[in-house]
Simulated scan of single mutants.
Amino acid sequence: MKTKTVSFTATTLPRLTDEQRASLTSLAARPDSEIDYSDIPEITDAQLKTGVRGRFYRPVKMQITARVDADVLEWLKSQGKGYQARLNAILRREMLNALK
């Protein structure tokens, strides 16, 4: 039996039914004190210390056109395959240093 994969974007989502809207409205109106956390394990201090932020984060790649000095491009390419990834890594390192 074949399985059909259905995908939606923000613009192609089906409209909510009146029943779904009413359910969401009633949930939003409930105070936080009524939320049942009994089935969620509490996070320990040890877990917080070993946790890694953004571990599964993958930034969206965008195709651009950029003018780079010829000697810079040759230097990147001379290090082997993956010069675009290296260029991105260099730019990301500089961005993170500037944000500190």
Score class of each variant (00 low, 15 high):
K49D: 12
S7R: 14
A46M: 13
Y37T: 12
L96S: 03
Q79P: 01
L91H: 02
A10S: 11
F56K: 12
R93P: 01
L99D: 13
T25W: 10
I90W: 09
S33C: 13
A98D: 10
I40A: 03
E94R: 07
G54C: 06
M1T: 11
V6N: 00
Q20I: 12
I35P: 01
D69L: 09
T50R: 08
L76T: 03
M95R: 11
R15N: 06
N88P: 00
L96G: 04
T44E: 02
T44A: 02
L96V: 12
K81C: 04
R93N: 10
E34S: 10
D45A: 14
T9W: 08
R15V: 06
T11Y: 01
A70Y: 04
D39M: 15
V60E: 08
T11L: 06
P41W: 12
S26I: 07
L76W: 04
F8Y: 15
T65E: 03
R58H: 05
R86T: 01
K4E: 15
S7M: 11
G54V: 08
T9E: 07
A85Q: 11
D32A: 14
L76H: 00
V72S: 02
T5A: 08
L27F: 12
A89D: 11
R93D: 13
R55Q: 09
S33P: 06
S7T: 15
A66I: 15
L99V: 05
D71K: 08
A22L: 15
K4T: 15
D39L: 15
M1R: 07
E34A: 04
P31H: 00
N88H: 02
I35W: 11
R55W: 05
R15M: 06
T11R: 10
D71W: 08
T3H: 05
Y83L: 05
